[in-house]
């Protein structure tokens, strides 16, 4: 075999193919199955997927075993003469009824899981999630803590000017933090177009629809950091609005919440920033509040302040901008 420039590529391809055949564990980079479930619901889903696959595999082996046997044996080149049967009612009834029974067997566990997924009653806490182009906002309804969560991966990594980090495109500035073992209800809506909020490990995926709220829930059994991504096409940066959930112990959660409440109670109000955040209706400048990241707005405000004779000489901080976004001030007041 020639050993040209293609060799590493070929090696990778072969490795992948053999990886497919042996097992996922050998080739860590080649994950073949759903992610390791971290909640009872996710485990149900995982097992159901395994069950359906086994059923399909069995059918595949039987049906295509027969087909390939036939291809091997009933060839003209092997001298096989064609028979001329073309119907058999008994056989046809059998292969209509058997799949039907198999389907009923599969529908039963699926029905149970559907009902469990839809049961958002009696949550331990409720978090409102709002999708924007292209970031998420989290609002802890009872505690008045509210913040934006945006992609933390630097632009340079995306544009290949820097090495990509381990959590490339799966890291955010402010992750969602929830306590372990608690039923968390998420209320979803969106500020512009439809987005969809997904944590694979916790089997929760729900579209966020502007003008409507939808609810879903999850309950993580273990602590850890779980990463998902937006799964409804929402425009140019659809791929750049990940979701990170940190599941922590109750004590850690309480401490985090307390520090968040403190952080939110920063001084309020700067009229100039408001103009940037909210725009003027009817004017060409739309409200950027839902579109730019806090850091972007902070930069824009700093620019505005320091140009145009406004030599204030100060800096606008992203945290401060976040606190100015609609509702944040109210939250701050409530927290005080």
């Amino acid at each position: 075999m020639k050993r040209g420039a293609l060799r590493p590529l070929l090696g990778k391809t072969l490795a992948a193919l053999s990886g497919t055949m042996i097992s996922g564990a050998v080739w860590a980079g080649y994950q073949l199955n759903l992610r390791e479930p971290q909640s009872a619901l996710a485990r149900d889903v995982y097992n159901m997927h395994t069950l359906v696959n086994l059923v399909c595999l069995a059918i595949f082996v039987v049906v295509f075993g027969a087909m390939f046997f036939s291809i091997w044996k009933h060839r003209k080149s092997a001298g096989h003469q064609a028979e001329h049967f073309h119907e058999n009612t008994t056989v046809e009834v059998i292969w209509t009824v058997i799949p039907f029974l198999i389907l009923i067997g599969m529908a039963y566990p699926a029905t149970r899981t559907v009902l469990a997924m839809k049961d958002t009653s009696n949550p331990d806490m409720t978090i409102k999630v709002t999708g924007y182009q292209w970031k998420w906002e989290y609002d802890y309804l009872k505690d008045g803590v509210k913040f934006m969560s945006t992609l933390a991966t630097p632009r340079a990594q995306i544009e290949n000017r820097a090495d990509k980090g381990a959590e490339y495109l799966l890291e955010v500035d402010n992750p969602l933090v929830v306590p372990v073992g608690k039923k968390v209800r998420v209320l979803l809506t969106a500020g512009d177009v439809i987005h969809s909020w997904w944590i694979p490990e916790l089997a929760v995926k729900q579209d966020a629809i502007p003008g409507f709220i939808r609810d879903a829930w999850f309950k993580s059994e273990t602590t850890g950091t779980f990463r998902g991504q937006c799964v409804e096409l929402c425009g140019k940066d659809h791929a750049f609005m990940p979701i990170v959930v940190k599941v922590v112990s109750q004590a850690e959660y309480d401490a985090w919440l307390a520090s968040r409440k403190q952080g939110a109670a920063s001084p309020s109000s700067a009229p100039l920033s408001r103009a940037v955040l909210n725009g003027r209706p009817g004017a060409a400048v739309a409200a950027f509040g839902g579109q730019l990241s806090d850091a972007d707005i902070a930069a824009a405000v700093a620019f505005q302040r320091n140009s145009r004779d406004n030599k204030v000489g100060d800096m606008a901080q992203p945290e401060r901008v976040a606190s100015l976004k609609p509702g944040a001030e109210a939250a701050a007041r409530a927290a005080r």
Partner: peptide, 11 residues
């Protein structure tokens, strides 16, 4: 719960 559309400069 209360939400404001991205195009409306209200709180």
């Amino acid at each position: 719960d209360a939400n404001v559309d991205a195009h409306l400069p209200w709180r």
